[in-house]
Amino acid sequence: MEMEDARIAVPSCLEGTQLKSSDFIWPESDRPYTSFFPSQDPAMAVGFSNEIQQRKDLEFPEVDLSLPDEEILSILRCAASSWGFFRVRNHGIPQDLFESIARHASDFFGLQLSEKRAISRVPPLPLGYTSIERSSDIKSWSEALHLMPGRDKICSLLHQVPSFREPHSFSSDVDKYFSLVGALANRIIRLLFQGLQVDAEQVDAVFNSIESSTLRINYYPACPVADFTYGSPPHKDYGGLAILHQDDVGGLEVLKDGCWVPVLPVKGCLIVNVGELIQIVSNGRFPSVLHRSLVKCSQSRLSFVFFYFPSDDTWIGPIPKLITEDCPAKYKSFYMRDYKSVFGKAQKAHQSPSLFFQELTN
């Protein structure tokens, strides 16, 4: 059943745009509850179509980071190799920091579109606002604020929005969050590779600074066509580790054994997922997996996700110790800048950037 514009009330998030709710409706075969996201990427296009279902009986892996490292290693390795996702608790980031960032973010997204447009993101720089109207063939129902490390950089950006309250406080919160979540990401990455008996020095050669990392704060307004669109369609994360905080509304789903598994929000916990760079560095032992974000008809939702990206001059490839006769190198080595250069090409073709660096023998 297709939906007619006349039957859909114009939500406030579309006021001031030329968009209609119907602009966000995906073809019937590609909607969240009927099929799979079409792709030319053989790593993604596995031909699920209508056989994809939601599974709520699978136990999502959880890691308690207050346990001794030796107890964490096997749990972490199993979760990363079989799911590519896991929940962490006792991570050391205070709850009031999450709540403060969420409050500031809600204030920002509540501004008029014309005010938010004052800091529109200009790619490729991952800094600024992207609206629900950003151009794409089929649009997703979301807004985002992209931020980079550096309190002054964040504050300078937010000062360009005169009616935004407390830019200094928000900048301070985000700067503190970058520091804490960056340290958390480094600890998790070290533990992941320690489980493969890889020395920390080899891991630190790739993941040694968060200066090129980003924080994306996502806002998903209540959506009148929720069953017909996505907050974010099925995709993989291209960076190293991604660490997600979601509110109590939820909406994240992970593809596991051919089924979409809802990842329920748990207060005080964070969701971690393996990006394609860790898949490459681990020589495929820790796979990056498809996930998607759904939206709600009656509720808005907010999330923020830290993406770990190495610096442009970082040399990346499978760690030599993980290349064996039984498991030859699956990827070529490259500089991070070369990897980033294929992002646009990959996205247009619905492909993963890692495909451009696969060894032809595999």
Rank of each mutant, 00 (worst) to 15 (best):
L264A: 15
H159M: 14
R337M: 04
Y339A: 07
P265S: 11
P126M: 04
L241K: 05
S82E: 15
V181K: 03
F307S: 08
K345V: 12
S114G: 02
E59V: 11
R31H: 02
S179R: 08
E143F: 09
E59R: 13
V181S: 02
R190P: 01
L322D: 01
F286Y: 15
R301W: 13
H104C: 12
T361H: 13
C223R: 08
F306A: 10
Y219F: 15
A80K: 12
D312H: 14
K348P: 00
S12A: 00
S293D: 03
V295I: 05
D57Y: 13
Q53Y: 11
R301H: 09
L147P: 09
K267G: 13
S39H: 08
G231S: 06
D237N: 11
L14K: 00
Q197M: 02
P27W: 07
V261M: 14
I280V: 14
D96E: 11
L270D: 06
I138S: 05
E71N: 14
L145W: 12
E325D: 13
A144S: 13
K348W: 05
D57C: 04
A43T: 07
G195T: 02
L58P: 02
G250N: 13
F304N: 04
T229G: 07
K116F: 06
Q95Y: 08
V88F: 15
I217D: 03
L196R: 03
L355I: 04
Y220P: 03
L215P: 08
L73C: 07
V203E: 01
T34S: 07
R89E: 13
Q358I: 02
V161A: 02
I280P: 10
A185I: 04
A45E: 11
P224E: 08
Q202V: 02
V289T: 15
H159R: 15
P123T: 03
E133S: 13
Y220M: 05
E70T: 09
R87P: 11
K176M: 12
V249R: 15
A43W: 10
G150L: 10
Q53N: 12
K236I: 04
N283M: 10
Y308D: 07
R216A: 08
P224L: 10
F306L: 11
G182S: 15
V295E: 11
A79W: 08
L215I: 14
P94S: 12
T324G: 12
K348I: 05
I52P: 10
S352I: 01
R216L: 09
H291N: 09
Q202N: 04
C327Y: 15
S22L: 00
K296T: 03
G284C: 06
P94M: 06
I188T: 03
H168V: 06
S106D: 07
F334H: 09
L76P: 11
Y238I: 04
L125W: 02
S172G: 06
